[in-house]
């Protein structure tokens, strides 16, 4: 299966990926709230997250994880859209959005505009 590798350390928080996504999926339109990738910015940390599956039930246990001395809210890193994380939904209709690798064959537009190299496309091996 093709993958997109996300290197959080390289992400500068410019959000060009959100714009490329929105333009690809909606004609002539830039709207980060309708993008299927979102960069969460918390202080000096940037988390690019690709929209995963929608679930209508939120987790019953929520995790804080510590990796290399940094504490992360797993909800922020999670790719799902759920009642506790109402992201990746059309703002007006609430229809869930999901990353589709920009079609078949996969051609993710977000990767193309990622100058710092935080997003890398790994084709099917």
């Amino acid at each position: 299966m093709a993958r997109i590798k996300v290197d959080h350390d390289k992400c500068t928080g410019c959000r060009l990926c959100e714009l490329a996504c929105s333009l690809h999926h909606i004609e002539n339109t830039f709207n980060p709230k309708r993008s299927r990738i979102k960069v969460f910015i918390e202080g000096e940390l940037h988390y690019p997250v690709l929209a995963g599956p929608y679930t209508d039930a939120e987790c019953t246990a929520k995790n804080m994880v510590v990796i290399a001395g940094h504490e992360y809210d797993e909800c922020v890193l999670c790719r799902a859209s759920c009642p506790a994380k109402p992201i990746f939904k059309e703002p007006d209709t609430e229809v869930p959005l999901k990353c589709d690798f920009c079609g078949d064959p996969p051609d993710p537009q977000c990767v193309k505009v990622c100058v710092p190299g935080a997003l890398t496309f790994l084709p099917e091996d």
Partner: peptide, 19 residues
């Protein structure tokens, strides 16, 4: 220096985050 930070839509990211 902690890391580089970009403004919206900027491919250069000259912002310097320090601690």
């Amino acid at each position: 220096l902690v890391r580089n930070k970009a403004c919206f839509s900027c491919p250069v990211a000259g912002g310097r985050v320090y601690r």
